[in-house]
């Protein structure tokens, strides 16, 4: 029993740590539910932030290795936050999840260090596929 518990804890520790950054509580909860439902088995949610400033603070606390990042947020937007997070941890994987679907914005996010883009409104499948692909990428 103790051994099983230890194995489970070890497996949890090995999962990628996901931080969700979005100014909408509904979207943050929805992304967390997709993860909790086992749709993205390689990750566990370690933190949720309402804006870029909060994300930077939480990053030092949890050291996430995967982040979903909204772009239009108060305090600090997702582009500036992405740039800062990549400076803190160049290996962090950032998936932008935003309604801003013009090519110039997507390109700017990628240039600042994001690795993928999911456009709002998204389905659970689209989010899960994008995160799974991001984690499986070499």
């Amino acid at each position: 029993m103790t051994r099983n518990l230890r194995t489970t804890k070890a497996a949890k520790r090995e999962k990628h740590k996901l931080m969700v950054v979005d100014d909408s509580n509904i979207i943050r909860n929805r992304i967390a539910r997709v993860v909790e439902a086992g749709r993205i088995p390689a990750v566990t949610v370690v933190g949720m932030a309402r804006n870029g400033m909060e994300a930077l603070h939480l990053c030092h606390e949890h050291w996430p290795d995967v982040i979903t990042m909204d772009l239009t947020m108060p305090e600090m937007d997702g582009i500036v936050c992405t740039e800062n997070l990549v400076r803190i941890n160049p290996d962090v994987l950032i998936l932008v999840v935003s309604a801003l679907n013009d090519k110039a914005t997507a390109l700017e996010a990628l240039q600042k260090g994001a690795h993928g883009f999911v456009c709002k409104p998204f389905t659970d499948d689209q989010l899960a596929d994008a995160l799974n692909e991001l984690l499986e990428a070499p």
Binding site: T72, S98, A99, L100, N101, D102, A104, T105, P121
Partner: peptide, 13 residues
């Protein structure tokens, strides 16, 4: 926010 953001595909940044 979603409706307005999606409109940028047409209007641009």
């Amino acid at each position: 926010n979603t409706f307005s953001g999606n409109a940028r595909e047409y209007f641009g940044p």
